[in-house]
Simulated assay, not measured.
Amino acid sequence: MKQTTQIGMWALLPAALMALAGSAQAQRYDDRYDDRYNDGPVRCESIKNRTQQCPIDGRARLVRQLSGSPCIEGDTWGQARNGVWVTRGCRAEFIAERGRPSHGGGWGNNGNNGGGWGGGRGQIISCDSNDQRMRRCNVSVRRDVRLVRQTSRTACVEGRTWGHDRDGVWVNGGCRAEFEIR
């Protein structure tokens, strides 16, 4: 009888683990992010290469890739009406930039001079790390930089494989992308 009960418990373990995995598709974390963002990061995961949508309040920005599969904006992750979507094994943490979608459909600043990426687009530049080498793309940065399209299969993660200062953008480790300079 004791052996039968133990076998029954082991048989239920995979089902319990799958239930936990299904409920962990989108997790919100509150830690080290400053007031430019609405909340802490949201983890969104494509399990078994399936498309998953996760709620996020604002324009999503990838801050940490968790998967071995590439997370490329517009290809394996992107903006959804009320969040972010991931597919083909992309698992990552995203943060929401301040600013709500305007009624016109874009990411406007809704009449204030604060957050949001609305209004006119800034200058778009391409910056490529070839052969995993560091490259600096010199351009004058007045406010900030936003990755708008990753063109490499290697992840472009701000602070790790790309970054910026007031004199330009740097890329490293095979990151190739287009950046909006504002």
Rank of each mutant, 00 (worst) to 15 (best):
P101G: 12
P101N: 11
P101I: 13
P101S: 12
P101Y: 13
S102K: 15
H103L: 13
G104H: 15
G104W: 09
G104A: 12
G105R: 00
G105E: 04
G105N: 02
G106V: 01
W107H: 07
W107V: 07
G108Q: 03
G108P: 03
N109C: 12
N109T: 11
N110W: 11
N110K: 12
G111D: 00
G111E: 00
N112I: 13
N113I: 11
G114R: 04
G114T: 03
G114A: 04
G114C: 04
G115T: 01
G115I: 02
G115K: 02
G116T: 06
G116V: 05
G116W: 10
G118F: 03
G118K: 02
G118L: 03
R121S: 14
R121N: 11
R121M: 11
G122S: 04
G122V: 05
I124N: 08
S126C: 09
S126N: 15
S126W: 09
S126Y: 14
C127P: 04
C127T: 03
D128L: 05
D128Y: 07
N130P: 09
N130V: 12
N130G: 09
D131I: 09
Q132H: 10
Q132A: 14
R133L: 01
R133S: 00
R133E: 01
R133D: 01
M134K: 14
R135D: 06
R135F: 08
R135H: 10
R136M: 08
R136K: 10
R136V: 05
C137I: 00
C137V: 00
N138I: 03
V139Y: 05
V139F: 03
S140V: 14
S140I: 14
V141M: 00
R142E: 07
R142T: 11
